[in-house]
């Protein structure tokens, strides 16, 4: 999965907020709000095409969590982004 290049991410207070610019801004009206974990995964997927397994491995390398928790978090976030047509 790779994030549509029209999306930009910025920190607002304690949250991260992604909004589109360019052509995508004509059809996507809203904000994607992310916590620290979501923003971490978002930035990986913005750089390159990632599988869920790669995202889980990256999460495990960065945070002290179990593989099961990491896999659940990754799957939940990926599904939410898919439902909102965030990916290329």
């Amino acid at each position: 999965m790779q994030i549509n290049h029209d999306f930009t991410i910025q920190k607002v207070g304690a949250s991260y907020v992604a909004v589109p610019v360019g052509e995508t801004s004509k059809t996507f009206h809203g904000m994607v709000r992310l916590n620290e974990t979501g923003a971490f995964l978002w930035k990986l997927m913005a750089e390159k095409d990632c599988t869920e397994e790669e995202l889980v491995d990256a999460l495990l390398a960065e945070y002290d969590v179990s593989r099961e928790v990491a896999a659940n978090d990754v799957h939940r976030i990926v599904e939410q982004l898919k439902q909102n047509n965030i990916f290329i």
Partner: peptide
Amino acid sequence: NGYYVSTTV
């Protein structure tokens, strides 16, 4: 949310 973020048109 206490804020709104958007591109400008």
